[in-house]
Design a binder for these strands. Structure first.
Length: 231
DNA sequence: CGTCTTTGACCCGCGC
DNA sequence: GCGCGGGTCAAAGACG
């Protein structure tokens, strides 16, 4: 996974309606609109929004290039989407304080080679990797967002099994830990309520599903829609 | 009886 | 090295 935006698309947080050119050279349009389906909401719910011109203006130095590479365009686009989503949802953010999950070291090393801004993609240093011995660790992509809801566990189409609950310091509401029930699927999510505003539910997803949502399987919906959930 | 939740214990990373 | 806090395990209980 090369970027936050792509990860969000793959998570179903963002729906990608923009075709990203794959060839190098030429100029490519930046997105002016985007749609996304928040986790916790049925896939039939889509929030359509226009990216503020101010955000697009931020990318103007690059826009003036007559020969943008597809990767440059893609990066600008992702930056815009990231900043816009950050403003729009308030809440949707890439976790900077990712913790370690258990996983395959080889996977980690392979997926860890890319990065920009001096930080590698998953933030795993070789020093830390050396500490890994018997128990293997990998940092999975993680996203969290806030929703206002009375319900703690929002229906996101997947089946989850609760495996733990913890009272977090300085909050009166416990944090719940869930794991995807599908075999070999290591996706986890954490659900907690915001201390300052208990109406807000903070949901954090970690990892990638290796299967489609259970609802789609049960309801035998359009398979093209189900593809949005492969990640 | 199988599945899921609850909950105390344990493990691990991190800061001091 | 130690203590704290977050994350996970796993046994026991609840439920359908």
């Amino acid at each position: 996974m090369s970027s936050t935006a792509q990860a969000m698309i793959n998570h179903g947080l963002l729906e990608d309606h923009q075709d990203i050119p794959t060839q190098i050279g030429g100029s490519y349009p930046l997105p002016t609109n985007l749609s996304f389906t928040p986790f916790g909401c049925n896939q039939s719910l889509k929030i359509y929004t226009t990216i503020p011109s101010s955000l697009i203006a931020d990318a103007s130095p690059c826009l003036n290039d007559t020969l943008l590479t597809s990767s440059t365009t893609k990066q600008i686009r992702e930056d815009i989407i990231n900043s816009h989503i950050g403003t729009q949802l308030l809440s949707l953010q890439r976790s900077s304080a990712n913790l370690w999950g258990w996983g395959d070291v080889n996977e980690c090393l392979i997926s860890n080679k890319k990065g920009h801004g001096g930080e590698d993609n998953l933030g795993v240093s070789s020093m830390k990797m050396k500490k890994i011995k018997a128990r293997r660790k990998v940092r999975e992509p993680r996203f969290c967002f806030k929703t206002m809801s009375d319900i703690d566990v929002l229906d996101d189409g997947y089946k989850w099994r609760k495996y733990g609950q913890k009272v977090v310091k300085n909050t009166q509401h416990p944090r719940s830990y869930y794991r995807c029930t599908q075999d070999n699927c290591r996706v986890k999510k954490r659900v907690e309520r915001l201390a300052e505003d208990p109406r807000m539910v903070i949901t954090t997803y970690e990892g990638r599903h290796i299967h489609s949502p259970s609802h789609d399987l049960e309801d035998s919906q359009d398979p093209s829609q189900a593809n949005n959930f492969f990640w």
